[in-house]
Design a protein around this nucleic acid. Structure first.
Lengths: 252, 252
DNA sequence: CACTGACTTTCATTACGTGAAAGCCGACGT
DNA sequence: ACGTCGGCTTTCACGTAATGAAAGTCAGTG
């Protein structure tokens, strides 16, 4: 493995969200001898990808935050999505959410009025946004994502058949929904953003309500908001949108 | 320079916000021979720090976004700040903003009701949030930041003397303000968050209004919101807060 | 005071990255 | 159609720069 590879696996040690790690743990997680880990960590600290805390442990640095925030793929979604989210939240009075697929999990891109923070991972099969995205995915990719149908509440759909039937309905035009399938007391509806793009929708826009009826009532508004975002996403031309498919280099 | 250093300077090529770059440009900006740049870029793409677009150019990848969002330093500010921002925006009806120092510029951490996106850079000397932070900084660091007092509107304070007098007043307890010093028609007031921390406040909370009077009226509310955030920032113990001082390794 | 565990330094060894040079490919001009 | 140019990719002989075992430091603990 290359030096850079090792360095990236050092960063990976933080990927699970652990706020801070000691050198020894980093070395273990990255599977590197201690001196090597130390050298890499030092260099990452010097650049600002990591920060050293007063107790000697390390955490991800603010320079990484700043740089990561520039990633166009997500940045455009936030830029275009925020006004739409704000408006939707104001009109409905409900928490709204914009989420995208990242690898095999659903990641929150932005939200208004919700406790979920950007970057949080959600189970795709048990959330309305997840279903909205899955429904429009090519079959092969969908199967790839739907490996773990964990039961999160008594209402979670864990049977592939039932889930696929719902996804087919969504593909046919029904709004995606999840009635207490993720958390009890949470009813969500969602609509894909830019659904006709190359490899599937860029994101999904979801609203959470106390009752299914309340959620359903919001659907037309969500659809409008999603269209606004989709419109902005492809101003004139083609650039469909980025996909979170990891490790695939389309061009030679 | 080390391999990792070169790789990081490849990432740096994107730091100015350019959404996408061709290989040749990356090599130029990072000051690397083409084959070297290519190898590094390939490896970064494989990991997900960069993405290759259909036209062959590269951009920052979504994995970097996800990882960067985990940086505790900023993440905690967002986690604690968002509810406070939401509330403050609802009560005042005005755009609110949470910003922190990063190197020599002010960076937007989060905002509600504003067009400014997280990650945007602002001039510290011409914004209320910038002044609130500068005022509580150690002298040496403040001078370091205040190198460029660009005139942005006719009202921008460009004389070090006048600015320092304002900063002294702020340090003495006055709320920080900027009356059309950054943009015409924008009047801001700001209050530091966690001002007693080691190296200066963690962030500043600002509100923008059409008139100075309107902004001033919001001050008590901002102070309360800032206290809420400060409170959450140090639940029990000491951990003051991270500083964006680049390249300083406090411990040996 | 010896011991442990976490971190740091040193240094002989060589693997790995280097970059000049040459090859490839598509775009453009005539 | 053909030559040309710019941008990208591959190759390969070379030597720098990364490696990791071993030894050293230091704070905390029994």
């Amino acid at each position: 493995m290359s030096v850079l590879g090792r360095a990236l696996s050092v960063l990976d040690a933080f990927a699970d969200g652990t706020p801070s790690l000691r050198l020894t743990v980093i070395a273990q997680r990255a599977d590197l001898p201690l001196p090597t880990a130390l050298r890499l960590v030092r260099e990452l600290v010097a650049w600002g990808a990591l920060e050293r805390q007063s107790d000697g442990s390390y955490r991800l640095g603010s320079r990484l935050w700043t740089l990561g925030g520039q990633a166009p793929c997500r940045r455009r979604l936030v830029d275009l999505g925020r006004p739409a989210l704000d408006g939707l939240n104001r009109v409905t009075g409900l928490p709204v959410l914009l989420a995208a697929l990242d690898g095999n999990s659903l990641v929150v891109v932005d939200g208004v009025g919700t406790a979920l923070r950007p970057g949080t991972s959600l189970p795709p099969h048990a959330t309305a946004a997840g279903k909205a995205l899955l429904a429009h995915l090519p079959d092969s990719r969908r199967r790839q994502v739907l490996t773990d149908l964990a039961r999160l509440t008594p209402y979670t759909l864990t049977a592939p058949g039932a889930l696929n039937r719902q996804l087919a309905a969504i593909r046919a035009g029904a709004p995606a929904s999840a009635w207490e399938e993720w958390h009890l007391g949470e009813n969500e509806v969602a609509v894909p953003v830019d659904p006709l793009a190359g490899q599937g929708p860029a994101a999904a826009l979801a609203v959470t309500a106390r009752s299914a009826a309340q959620a359903r009532r919001a659907v037309p508004l969500i659809v409008r908001a999603a269209l606004t975002i989709s419109g902005g996403l492809r101003p004139v031309g083609q650039p469909p949108h980025c996909q979170g498919v990891p490790g695939v280099d389309s061009r030679r």
